[in-house]
């Protein structure tokens, strides 16, 4: 079983559409994991049945039990996040400001403050239209994506893949360069970087690749909308060459991506054209490279 992670650093590069296309091409042999939980959109293309729902708890939140509170005000004094205020004479915690550091609970003289596990969202195991399964999540507003949720989603996908003897897990990775993306990458056999030839696209590609390098994971790159700025596309290719990243494909600027999405389809289902051919070719290359990625 191999784990392939698709990341992009910057948003809006077509990462999710491309991942979904690979999932369709891989069919029943691919378990999907949507770890882009900040903007979890994969379900819009995969017709999940949300069959199996679970609560996800992460971090803590201070809670003040009013019946035992002596209104001494110590908690409010020590809180650096201004998360405790007095409303109608009662000390209350604003969940949006509380960082869950637990300091107030430690100093409360009557031990009336407790740290509650914070319900950060939900995660699901769904049957999807490819005949396979997908693990995905939804965060509560204001909840932070964390390495823990990403690890959870990936673990569940891995368990399914092992149990049902699937060859691949496809992970739609988290954005940015922080803890969630580290967790997305951790354990991967191959990384697909999706980028676009814009000043910010190249900049973000370089940043996220630093992480990939650190984890010693073999990587390939798809340049989406490559023809929109040939000069920058060329700069990206030079960077790929220098860093020994496999150049998987140049995808042309094409509104079929959006048209397909509007139908709730991936591009490979929507139209059999150049774009679909290029994506199919990329997927074949990825499979070869992933399986070549043998132990050094």
């Amino acid at each position: 079983m191999k784990e392939i992670v698709i990341i992009s650093g910057k948003g809006g590069t077509g990462k999710t559409s491309i991942t979904a296309s690979f999932a369709v091409l891989g069919g029943t042999n691919v378990v999907l994991a949507d770890c882009d939980v900040d903007a979890a959109d994969m379900h819009l293309l995969m017709q999940p049945d949300f069959g199996n729902e679970h609560d996800f708890y992460s971090g803590e939140l201070a809670y003040i039990d009013q019946s035992n509170c002596t209104r001494c005000g110590l908690c409010r004094q020590i809180c650096r996040f201004d998360a405790i205020s007095v409303i109608d004479g009662e000390y209350v915690v604003a969940p949006i400001d509380c960082e869950g550091c637990g300091y107030c609970a430690r100093v409360c003289p009557t031990k009336t403050i407790i740290n509650k596990k914070l319900l950060a969202g939900k995660w699901y195991i769904s049957n999807i239209k490819t005949g396979s399964q997908m693990v995905h999540a939804r965060l509560e507003t204001g909840a932070d994506n964390s390495g823990k949720l990403v690890a959870k989603v990936k673990d569940e996908a891995k368990a399914i893949a092992l149990g049902k003897r699937k060859d691949y897990i496809l992970v739609d990775g988290s954005p940015g360069v922080g803890c969630p993306v580290v967790s997305s990458l951790s354990g991967a056999n191959f990384v697909v970087l999706v980028t676009e030839p814009s000043v910010s696209g190249l900049h973000d590609l370089k940043r996220v690749h630093q992480l990939v390098k650190k984890f010693n994971i073999r990587a390939g790159c798809i340049i989406n909308k490559a023809d929109i700025n040939p000069g920058l596309s060329n700069d990206i290719k030079l960077f790929l060459e220098k860093e020994n990243i496999a150049h998987l494909a140049d995808l042309p600027y094409n509104e079929d991506f959006t048209m397909a999405m509007t139908q709730g389809e991936t591009i490979v289902e929507y139209r059999q054209g150049t774009l679909t051919a290029l994506i199919k070719e990329s997927w074949e290359k990825i499979k070869v490279l992933t399986n070549q990625n043998k132990i050094k």
Partner: peptide, 30 residues
């Protein structure tokens, strides 16, 4: 981007917020 803490910090004392989106299923969902 997103709906987590940094966005809340960035918008919580704004006088007006402009949300920009694309007319696609992804855009609508987000």
């Amino acid at each position: 981007p997103g709906t987590s803490c940094p966005v809340i910090e960035a918008t919580k004392d704004a006088d007006f917020v402009i949300l920009i989106t694309e007319p696609t299923p992804f855009g609508l969902h987000d």
